[in-house]
Amino acid sequence: MNRYMIHLNSKRCIGCHGCEVHCKTNKRLPVGPILCEIDHEPLKPVKGVPKTEFSFRSCYHCDDPFCVPVCPTQAMVKREDGIVYVDQEKCIGCMACAGACPWTIPQLNPATGKAIKCDYCMDRLDQGLKPACVTKCTTHALKFVRLEVV
């Protein structure tokens, strides 16, 4: 069961792509993989003002992920708190996970030759911090949400 999600307040988002770079620099990624993405709809006039809605996408951390069972080396792991992550020690970079994922979320890190994906910065979470993209969001538009069963 997933315990977390990242929520984007589109009203505050200014499409500055800060989150994408905050993520990349935290994970020391080279040019190539981008683990989270900001996008927006084409502009449409609303009461005379051209407007748009922004969306944020990283990994859905599926309840029943396709990428986990397909991994031949058990490098793709779903943690108890729902986070789906790549065990870098075990990954052989075959990218079967990317093929299995409906959204091709896992990407190849050319610096290591292994798969890389959003893991909600679990090293930071485990220290009581928030993911890099949320922590440094330019306008505090991203929120890290802990889900609770009601």
């Binding site: 500055c16 770079v21 440094k136 330019t138």
Partner: peptide, 14 residues
């Protein structure tokens, strides 16, 4: 700034 930084700010590492 409550930790906020823009894309350019993070790209200072590069």
């Amino acid at each position: 700034l409550d930790h906020a930084l823009c894309a350019k700010g993070s790209a200072g590492m590069a």
